[in-house]
Simulated scan of single mutants.
Amino acid sequence: MHKLLGVFFLVWFSLQVNAQDSLAVVQDTAKTHSWKRAALFSAVIPGSGQIYNHIAMPKGKKKAYWKVPLIYAGLGATTYFVVKNNILKNDFRSEYESRKIGNAPSNFLEYDDQSLLTLYTTHRNKRDFAILGLGLVYLLNIVDAAVEAHFVNFDISEDLSLSIHPTMYNSSSYGVSFQFKFR
């Protein structure tokens, strides 16, 4: 009986210690929501920083997850344009090089050599702009996650107000007055 009671207290004590340790971990993570971690998550897997911020937000304010489909749509669209314009650029270049070594036109019969060079340059520039767009979407994903992480615990109270009123300083001077109230 004493051994069974001893095992019971040992298990009960270890469960109490584990519960306190896990409670301390939960309290620490709630206090230390890091913008660096959100930015790192979004840099590794785009959109994961927004999910990280969404999970950390208080119950009534959870609104960060809706940006993830937009991020992937932006990344997908810009990647599509990069690939499409790169393929067209390579096709125009190979056709031009094929004509220069004496082969008959095969793919682009309606274009002469100068038109092929112009189309090559146009699609190369479009590809380069699409690469810049891809980088911009990726960078905006990271910046959005970092900025939103700053607002996870941001409190907007009902006691804040701004009043704008027209004001007359004298008979010939008019203006606008702003009044901020913090309660």
Rank of each mutant, 00 (worst) to 15 (best):
L140D: 04
A149I: 00
Y138V: 05
R99E: 06
P69K: 15
W35R: 07
T78V: 07
P58Q: 14
V82S: 14
F182E: 12
S22F: 12
V137G: 01
A145I: 04
P58T: 07
S106P: 08
S172Q: 15
N53G: 00
L5T: 02
F13I: 09
V68W: 12
D21V: 07
F182Q: 03
S172V: 14
H2P: 03
K67F: 10
L136A: 12
V11F: 06
K89V: 04
A73E: 07
Y169R: 12
L132Y: 12
N170L: 04
F13A: 14
T122S: 07
T29E: 10
M57D: 03
A130C: 04
I55W: 04
V82R: 12
K181S: 08
V44P: 02
S157P: 11
N85L: 13
Y169W: 08
Q50R: 07
V176D: 12
G60Y: 10
R99M: 00
L117W: 06
S98P: 14
V11M: 14
Y169E: 05
F129D: 10
L5D: 11
H33Q: 08
F81Q: 13
A38H: 01
S22Q: 08
N141S: 04
S157Q: 15
N170V: 15
K36E: 02
L160N: 11
L4K: 04
N86S: 12
A77N: 01
V7D: 14
S22V: 13
Y80T: 07
L134F: 06
A130Y: 00
K67P: 00
Q179R: 14
Q16E: 06
L23I: 05
N103S: 15
V7L: 15
S22I: 02
Q20P: 07
T32K: 04
T118K: 09
L70G: 08
Q20I: 13
F182I: 14
V152N: 10
H54M: 15
D144C: 05
F41W: 04
Y65L: 05
H2S: 06
